[in-house]
Amino acid sequence: MYYNSTHSFLFVFLVMVFNISLAQQKDSTAVISYAEKMQIKLNVDSHLENYYITNSDDETDLNLALNNDLRLTVLLDYKIFSFSYSFTPDFLPGNHGDDEKGESSYSDFGISLFPGQFVQQLTYQRMKGFYVVNSDDFASNLPEDNPYLLFPDLKRTYYGGSTAYILNPDFSIENLVYQREWQRYNAGSFVPRLNYSYTEFSNDFEDFKGKEKDFDFSLDLNYYYNWVLAEKFNLSPYAYGGLGTRIENYKQRGDNLNEEDKNTYFTQEYGGGLQLGFNTDTFLMGARVSYKSLNYKNANDISIQNDSWYGLFFIGYRLDPPENLKRIADKY
């Protein structure tokens, strides 16, 4: 009797080990990782933000925008790191210098890390030179050769980051958002994300200088889904919504002016999008359309809204890393 029980236990144990090994094998083949490859990718997108300031008394929107239509991003991925640099080159359509709308400049740097089921992002961004899209609503007698109100010295500097956690361990956000992996079956996941940033707006109004400092903290909930259309194609919808708080400090300094105003507001944000991707072991490409919105009311009951629709096209190539880079990365 003892002999039979022992063999029964061994048989059950071996079956469990076999099933676990099959499950591990399935998981490892369901997501193809390209972490050992160096990935170079180019993005072209229209993700340049507009700012809408609405006065509840007369419901007039002040629409501020940059005089650039398209952004070019260069990305380099290797191991758990992703580096990016974005700018608005003149050779892209809509980025040519325009005397009517003034000169604008844009640049940002980003780094992303992927430890386990976490995604950590850090970003620095700088914009300068805005114009009022709906200038006719505020000045009806503008000359034909200068039909827009310009804020050439208005500058926005942004330091931000986010920490996200993928609740479903069998879902690859690196497949959808970063193309560092390829998921071969349908799967989705909720992804809570903590956002934190410091933004500074500054402008020279000739008689005085104004500076606004914003500290933003928010928590949002994202949902991503990977739908495999074919062996090398996927379709990926996503949506998110969140709440947060903004701590604002505005100062005005001039010869006869020295004012400061501090306020705290609750913010709302939401958005979503749809992405189509194509992937091979060496080549990748895709397109995405997205919408995002951030809004709040300030102490004077003025609504501030920052929203945009934007499109993105990406193309990339994977290759073996240089030996020097590989030796450095292997040490860590």
Rank of each mutant, 00 (worst) to 15 (best):
Y158Q: 13
Y159E: 04
W182M: 04
I173H: 11
D170V: 03
D220M: 08
F205P: 00
T157D: 10
L221G: 08
P147C: 09
F215S: 03
S162M: 04
N203A: 06
K211H: 05
E174A: 15
T199N: 11
S197F: 10
F217P: 09
K211V: 01
Y158D: 08
W182G: 03
S172F: 02
D204V: 00
N226R: 07
Q183P: 02
R193M: 03
L149R: 02
Y223Q: 10
F208G: 00
F208I: 00
Y165I: 08
F208K: 01
L150T: 04
D220E: 03
R156L: 15
D216H: 11
N222D: 03
D153M: 13
S202F: 00
D220S: 01
Y148M: 08
N195Y: 02
W182Y: 14
G188M: 01
Y185T: 14
Y148T: 11
R193A: 05
V191T: 04
Q179M: 07
Q183H: 03
R156H: 15
N146W: 14
L150M: 13
K155M: 05
S189M: 01
F201N: 02
P152I: 09
R184P: 09
L229W: 15
S218D: 12
E231P: 09
N186M: 07
Y158E: 10
K209M: 08
T163M: 13
Y185W: 06
D207Q: 04
S218F: 06
R193P: 00
L176T: 09
N146S: 15
E212D: 11
F151E: 06
L194K: 03
F138C: 04
K155E: 00
L194M: 05
Y165A: 10
F138M: 15
R180M: 07
P143I: 11
S202W: 00
L194N: 02
W182H: 04
A187V: 09
Y198F: 05
E174N: 15
Y185Q: 15
I173T: 11
L221M: 12
P169L: 12
S218Q: 09
D214Y: 12
G188L: 00
T163C: 13
F171M: 06
T163A: 14
S140N: 14
L142E: 10
Q183S: 05
L229Y: 05
Y198P: 04
N175F: 06
T199F: 02
G160H: 05
N226K: 08
S172V: 08
D214F: 15
F208E: 01
L176C: 11
D214R: 13
D214H: 11
L176S: 00
D145C: 12
G188K: 08
V191P: 03
G188Q: 02
F215Y: 15
N168A: 01
A230N: 08
L142C: 12
L194G: 02
A139C: 15
Y225E: 13
Y148A: 06
L167H: 07
E212P: 01
G210E: 04
D214Q: 13
Q183E: 10
E231V: 13
K213Q: 06
A164S: 11
W182L: 02
Y148D: 10
L229D: 06
Y196T: 09
A139F: 14
Q179K: 01
F215G: 13
R156E: 12
W227C: 14
N141P: 12
A230T: 15
S172E: 02
S162T: 08
S218M: 03
Y159S: 07
E144R: 09
N222S: 12
S218Y: 03
Y158L: 13
F215A: 12
N203Q: 09
Q183D: 01
F208C: 01
Y196S: 08
